[in-house]
């Protein structure tokens, strides 16, 4: 009756050394962080450093390079194709981002109405974002075909143009065609994210603005836009980053042509490094993207996110 086993002494049953260690919060935390640390240090941090180092060497495919200091960079500084790619990248990023956000915000505002077939519409909107970029880029390639372009066919049918548009043969046509394809692919992400932001805005704010006599435009500028700012900052940061480093779309549709007119920094880096074999020079081009990336990330995040704490929002 009065056996010791029935008296609970406040301790757990005796455990082996291993299971006690595994129950230690700190030991477990270290164990759980090991895989992610190993993976990201080996395949992310190390290559990032290696890439910067490669930029200072004359490494080629199949041959280790030696340190040549800034030679790659001085060479690129004189290289008109490199500066053309910088120009293209900036034009591509700025125009595509502006269009993506203008159209994406518009689409988000439209989707925020009470609509029939809501889930179907949402599925259609997300489709361009889901389908592999290269595969939809191939569809655009075909749409931009010099001879059988459906756009030229329709415009000719409407009597707007007489001859087919040479979408990918003229430098500016090619740039704008690529931007159009990028915008098409980017709208869904912007629209769906901003829609989520719109749905968190309390209707009472709009009612209050209406009672104060605000017009639809004033409500948009003074209620919708400030309330969307935090989410806009995050989405803009991502969008700028991924547009700036875009590779697939340009590689699939023009491969940098005609005559290097559409090379982005990423495609030029690939072109010089892998088919060209000059790994050091390619790495230098890739490294040259980093300052632009850091600057645009900081700008888009700080410029927009700052407003959040100015308005007294919390930080999470």
């Amino acid at each position: 009756m009065a056996s010791a086993a029935t008296v609970w002494d406040g301790r757990r049953p005796e455990q082996s050394w291993l299971s006690r260690k595994l129950d230690d919060r700190r030991v477990l935390a270290i164990l759980f962080m090991l895989p992610v640390a190993a993976l990201l240090l080996t395949f992310l941090s190390y290559p990032l450093g290696l890439g910067i180092w490669l930029g200072f060497t004359d490494t080629r495919i199949g041959r280790d390079g030696i340190w040549i200091g800034l030679e790659n960079y001085t060479y690129l500084f004189e290289d008109s194709v490199f500066w053309l790619s910088v120009f293209n990248t900036i034009v591509y990023t700025v125009l595509a981002t502006i269009l993506k956000f203008a159209l994406g915000l518009w689409l988000a505002l439209l989707l925020n109405h009470h609509l029939p077939f809501k889930s179907l519409i949402r599925a259609i909107v997300l489709l361009p974002w889901i389908v592999p970029t290269v595969l939809s880029a191939i569809a655009f390639w075909w749409i931009y075909d010099p001879q059988f372009s459906i756009i030229s066919y329709v415009l000719k049918g409407m009597g707007i143009i007489d001859t087919n548009i040479d979408f990918l043969g003229e430098p500016w046509n090619a740039r704008l065609s690529l931007i159009a394809a990028n915008v098409w692919r980017g709208i869904p992400f912007v629209a769906i994210s901003l829609l989520a932001g719109l749905q968190t805005i309390s209707p009472s704010l709009y009612e209050a603005a209406m009672i104060d006599g605000a017009t639809a435009w004033e409500r948009f500028v003074h209620v919708t836009v400030p309330m969307l700012m935090p989410i806009l900052a995050v989405v803009l940061t991502f969008s700028v980053l991924f547009t700036f480093t875009d590779f697939q779309l340009v590689y699939a549709i023009t491969r940098g042509g005609p005559n290097n007119a559409t090379h982005l920094m990423a495609t030029l880096a690939f072109q010089r490094a892998i088919p060209g074999g000059y790994l050091g020079e390619g790495a230098a081009i890739a490294v040259a993207m980093i300052p632009f990336l850091v600057a645009s990330t900081i700008f888009s995040y700080v410029a927009l996110a700052r407003r959040k704490w100015q308005q007294g929002g919390s930080d999470d």
Partner: peptide
Amino acid sequence: PPSILFIP
């Protein structure tokens, strides 16, 4: 971005 990492 992967476009910076693929060469190294």
